[in-house]
């Protein structure tokens, strides 16, 4: 799909202004780009979280396409029901639309953690839908608690940086890889800065012959204690430091590194990323120098492994 400004301008946005996401939150931009990739009638099933809450505060909704929220941990299960209901009604000649795309959206908490069982089940069953996680690195809606998507060294309200703790100690769950291991037709990581890459991949996800998964990086200035103007720049930096590399996995076996990552001669140091956010500030204290070095080492190892899988030298 060629992504041209003039075509994008013609499209009606799927999310209106007047939503109450924080100033500078990248999630609405992520949804906007998703909207640019749609190919026709679409239904969205969303998990509880910032995006759900702040776009549908009764009596207002920012959504211009059919949208349902049921609970936090079940977006993939709700989507299963939507997909199969449409299939059944179509089988019986009771459904008018030729094709309706179904998209489930969850935050990192709703996807890496509490909704993971529902996601894995839905992928295994093979319903034709796209699941997109917008990953802002913590349970932001409930006040910045750690999740399986939180980076090591990240300070949250349940992984404080203190005299003896450097924020979260554990690695980030490699979710896209775990999802790819389900051998579904399409998995991709995206970020809003690289909008062409985002839209192109999202469209591929919609066109996949079976379930597809999109891992979208989504900066959160409030939780990250970063400048509101930097959200899109931080998405770029996350790619350039290797914290959120861009790639696709086809059928769980063909790994393809995407242009923006592939074109990097080498990764920028993670410190450059950490410096931009209050949530990593403590890492620059001398006592955490070694821990910070460990994170850098792990990122480089993961990067080499990804390059190897993608056949990139």
């Amino acid at each position: 799909m060629a992504v041209r400004l003039k075509d994008m301008l013609k499209r009606e946005p799927i999310l209106s202004s007047g939503h109450r996401m924080c100033a500078g939150c990248a999630a609405p931009t992520v949804v906007k780009l998703m909207g640019m990739a749609l190919r026709g009638p679409t239904i969205v099933c969303e998990a509880t979280g910032c995006l759900e809450v702040a776009t549908t505060i009764y009596p207002f909704t920012a959504w211009k396409i059919p949208w349902i929220h049921v609970a936090f941990e079940n977006a993939a299960a709700v989507a299963s029901g939507v997909v199969e209901a449409i299939n059944a009604m179509r089988d019986k000649g009771r459904y008018k639309d030729e094709q309706v795309d179904v998209i489930a959206i969850g935050g990192d908490g709703g996807t890496f953690d509490i909704g993971f069982g529902a996601l894995s089940g839905a992928l295994e069953r093979g319903h034709k839908f796209v699941y997109m996680v917008y990953d802002n690195g913590a349970y932001q809606n409930t006040g910045i608690q750690r999740s399986g998507g939180t980076f090591p060294g990240q300070e949250t309200t349940t992984s404080w940086a203190g005299k003896v703790e450097p924020g979260k100690r554990q690695r980030k769950k490699p979710l896209a890889e775990i999802v790819a291991a389900h051998k579904i037709p399409y998995v991709a990581t995206v970020d809003p800065y690289h909008y062409r890459d985002f839209i192109t991949k999202f469209r591929k996800a919609l066109e996949a012959d079976g379930p597809a998964f999109i891992h979208a990086f989504s900066p959160c200035p409030r939780g990250w204690r970063s400048d509101t103007s930097k959200s899109i720049e931080l998405a770029k930096l996350a790619v350039e430091t290797g914290l959120h590399p861009l790639y696709e996995v086809i059928d769980g076996k063909e790994w393809i590194m995407s242009g923006p990552s592939k074109r990097l001669k080498e990764l920028r140091p993670v410190d450059e990323y950490f410096k931009t956010q209050g949530q990593f500030k403590h890492l620059f204290k001398p006592e955490w120098a070694e821990f910070r070095a460990w994170i850098q080492e792990e990122v480089l190892k993961d990067w080499e492994e990804l390059k190897r899988k993608c056949g990139v030298s």
Binding site: I68, A77, G81
Partner: peptide, 10 residues
């Protein structure tokens, strides 16, 4: 959850 999704479609 799937029942709710399916029922929501009609």
């Amino acid at each position: 959850s799937a029942c709710v999704g399916a029922s929501a479609v009609g």
